[in-house]
Simulated assay, not measured.
Amino acid sequence: MSLRTIGCVELNSVAVGMHVADEMLKAAQVELVMARPTCPGRYIVVVTGDTGSIKSSVEVGCEIGADMVVDHFTIASVHMDVIPALNGTSLVPKIDALGVIETCTAASCILAADAAAKAGDVALIEIRMAAGLAGKAFVTMTGDVGSVNASVEAGVAGVGESGPVLSHVVIPSPSEGIKAQLI
């Protein structure tokens, strides 16, 4: 699957989420990247395709989801590290400085991750969505301290109105114990 533009709709209902996913796929020429439940009883749908199709698909998802929509977005030219980090398949051979951004929704965390990855020479480690996090999400990244600082700042700003960002931190030299927990 060649990812170009991605779109996302996050909902407060699993049943409505499944319906939204189905209708988003029927509404435009898009491919499903992810459709699954998250905590606490939310559902996230991520699709890819050309920008016009994604915008149409997300619009339909928001209309059908109505008051169950928690968050949504469209990202043109998504950074290549985002989907592997989202799926937990990133290959990060070594961890230097560690950056973490924690958000209120999974969708806003994906926005933060994309902005962070585009802003500096960092590698996304993981985008952890809502499993055991009461609906929150966080992204971890690594690189040299300057790059991680710049990327975390850009990621926080990249959330925009989807926020809020609950917290963020840069750890210049994480302990070996923390590094072992991340990879």
Rank of each mutant, 00 (worst) to 15 (best):
V92G: 05
P172M: 08
G146W: 11
M129F: 00
V148R: 06
V46H: 05
M129K: 01
A180Y: 01
S151L: 06
V165F: 11
V156G: 04
A106F: 06
D81W: 13
L133D: 07
P37C: 07
V82R: 05
G61R: 08
D50K: 09
I83M: 13
A28K: 01
A131P: 05
L182R: 01
H168V: 08
P93Y: 12
N87I: 12
S77F: 11
A76S: 09
G146L: 13
C109L: 10
T74P: 02
E176I: 11
P40V: 01
K136P: 08
K179E: 10
G132D: 05
S108G: 14
D71T: 03
R4H: 08
T48M: 02
A150Y: 00
V82M: 01
I6R: 00
A116V: 05
V165H: 06
I178R: 10
V20K: 00
A115Y: 05
K26M: 10
S162E: 09
A130R: 00
A123N: 10
A35D: 14
I54D: 04
K118A: 00
E126W: 06
E153Y: 07
V47T: 00
S147Y: 13
G7H: 02
D114H: 11
S175E: 14
N87Q: 14
P37D: 11
G52I: 01
N149V: 12
M18G: 14
Q29L: 15
G135V: 01
A106L: 02
P174Y: 12
I171E: 13
E126V: 07
S77R: 12
S13Q: 03
P40W: 02
G135Q: 02
L11K: 08
S162D: 12
P174T: 10
E59N: 14
A97V: 12
E23R: 14
V47L: 04
I75F: 09
S175T: 15
K55C: 14
V33N: 07
E153M: 12
D50G: 06
V58H: 06
P84K: 05
G155I: 10
V30I: 05
M141Y: 12
V165Q: 11
I83P: 07
L133W: 03
N87S: 13
P93V: 14
A117K: 00
M80L: 15
I75L: 06
E153N: 13
I101Q: 10
I54K: 03
E63Q: 07
